[in-house]
């Protein structure tokens, strides 16, 4: 094994969630098919031993898949209200601000809707963007599919509910356009910020 580049690109939480959900739905589909084949065989009365290869279940992968989906789709995460179209729009409009790559990634991941949250993410916010803060916040707000107030209410509970799993059909429909090979799924780094953290893609210190 050889690590060629430990940090070749940054991924947003939404992208990771989409990737994991795709794996999850693949797995569910496979289990369902396997079950169906088994039932059909039992019904026909010819237990056929030499049929399709059974894919083994990858325990480690399943563990991290489920736990990470739970974390990423928890009620306190903005991913609940994010859509692919919304995020594309958001990264495009953020390009007009002079933000570093890391700052943009965090805006996408945390979707700050209050000034306090923005202060934490962006260094020297007031000096750099004194009058643009409201504009930035409204950009973020417009990228979320539902009113942000609901998310914050949920966060107040401080509880991550496992039932927050969105396994409905339409949730998967949204992810249909996801293609791992497309360039646009990698974090959009158009208009990378000047200097400060622009060297993130090289080795970490």
């Amino acid at each position: 094994m050889e690590v060629i580049n430990p940090r070749s690109a940054l991924l947003s939480n939404y992208e990771v969630l989409a990737l994991l959900r795709e794996l999850e739905s693949d797995h569910l589909a496979k289990t369902r098919t396997a079950l169906r084949i088994k039932k059909e065989e039992e019904a026909s009365g010819f237990p056929n031993k030499s049929h399709v290869v059974q894919e083994e279940v990858l325990q480690n992968l399943r563990t991290i898949e489920i736990e990470a989906i739970q974390y990423l789709s928890a009620i306190y995460q903005p991913t609940v209200n994010q859509t692919e179209a919304g995020l594309t729009q958001l990264t495009k409009s953020l390009a007009s601000y002079d933000l570093t790559k890391a700052e943009k990634l965090q805006i996408v991941n945390l979707a700050p809707t209050e000034p306090v949250e923005l202060y934490v993410i962006i260094e020297e916010l007031e000096d750099r963007f004194g009058d643009k803060i409201d504009g930035m916040l409204s950009t973020v707000r417009s990228s979320l599919s539902e009113p942000a107030a609901e998310v914050l209410d949920g966060a107040g509970e401080g509880e991550a509910q496992p039932e927050q799993f969105v396994y409905s059909e339409d949730a998967y429909m949204e992810e249909q356009p996801w293609e791992p090979d497309e360039n646009d799924v990698v974090f959009d780094d158009v208009g990378e910020g000047v200097g400060i953290e622009g060297d993130l893609d090289v080795d970490d210190d």
Partner: peptide
């Protein structure tokens, strides 16, 4: 929080998995 790493490795595929793509 998440990154992409490029890694090079050699993997062995067991004959029982030759049926898969």
């Amino acid at each position: 929080m998440f990154i992409l790493s490029i890694i090079k490795d050699t993997v062995a595929v067991h004959p029982s998995h030759f049926g898969l793509p």
